[in-house]
Amino acid sequence: MEKFTRVTGVAVPLMRANIDTDVIVPAKRLVGHQRDELGGFAFEAHRYRPDRTDNPDFVLNQARYRGAKILVTGENFGCGSSRESAVWALAGFGFHCVIAPSFGDIFFNNAFQNGMLLVCMAKDEVERLAADVEGSVTPVMTVNLVSRAITAPSGAETPFEIDAERRQALLEGRDEIGMTLARDAEIRAFQACDRAVRPWIYRTAPQDTESA
């Protein structure tokens, strides 16, 4: 995983609650496309008109927000399906960071697994950031994971909280599978103990219930 320290770039406000992962990338794009091809399908239902031209009413299509790297959005962002493609589509579109009052639980884990920073802030703070972006001439924002602070387009600084473990994993670009495999002796010891206590968990050959 790539390391994440800070991102400076265009921020775009998409202030709706409950944006689900089907909206972030529709199910029909989950097969037949490589992970790095999904950016073109991010927010597909809202982004395009029926003739596949850009829908000018959708905020991500506005000229001032082209090339956006930071998404400022509503609560429960990424609710719904567990598809990690939602993260790949956002990353493919160019986003490195999403700021919202809250996120879907599964999406939250998936984003951090891919080096994408999710920042949780109080609803009024997110709304203030969105207003700052909307009111700016150049909607450029910096999210600094090292100093845990956001610099809004107006120059206003807002600190943010983040779980220490997740922050460290992003800063180091950790490979969790490798780290867990380093604990394999512990895992095997746990399983050996557990096998004595709950042997039925590990007996997984099917029983012939007809003749039993």
């Binding site: 567990s82 990690e84 697994q113």
Partner: peptide, 29 residues
């Protein structure tokens, strides 16, 4: 798959995971 929570109806602690977590479980259980 996010609807893995279904199995909780039997008293299991069941939850949906993403593709990277699937790899993690395959490799480490």
């Amino acid at each position: 798959d996010s609807h893995t929570c279904t199995h909780g109806g039997l008293g299991a602690l069941a939850f949906g995971i993403g593709a990277t977590e699937v790899m993690h479980v395959l490799a480490t259980q």
